[in-house]
Design a protein around this nucleic acid. Structure first.
Length: 96
DNA sequence: AAAGTGACAGCCG
DNA sequence: ACGGCTGCCACTT
């Protein structure tokens, strides 16, 4: 049914440039999703081919089970973490 | 039908 | 600044 929403979420994530990040909440808002949880669910099911590592929690810390791997991928793009936390004020992608 | 679950977020102490 | 609580919504038991 909500194939629409599903694709919108995927498209938005594809637009995040290398070296920048976004949050579940921002993506949910941009895609018109009713809750950020949906973004997480879509990523877990159908996010393998997307730059999923550029999506963080509102705190700037990645989802718990992924922290290590995700911070590594981000570091490779020049996104540096202070401990486990990314500075959103610096790297957050606000759209074009 | 009710309760549990999860890649979340905001408020409060 | 951080843990705890509560609201959230689609899915599964």
């Amino acid at each position: 049914m909500d194939e629409e929403l599903h694709e919108r979420v995927r498209d938005i994530i594809k637009t995040i440039p290398s070296g920048r990040v976004s949050t579940y909440g921002d993506i949910a808002a941009a895609a018109g999703a009713s809750t950020p949880r949906l973004v997480g669910r879509i990523l877990s099911e159908d996010g393998h081919d997307l730059p999923w590592h550029r999506v963080l929690r509102a705190s700037g810390i990645p989802a718990p089970h992924l922290v290590h791997r995700q911070l590594e991928l981000l570091r490779a793009e020049g996104v540096l973490a202070d401990g486990q936390r990314i500075d959103l004020r610096r790297y957050r992608w606000e759209g074009p």
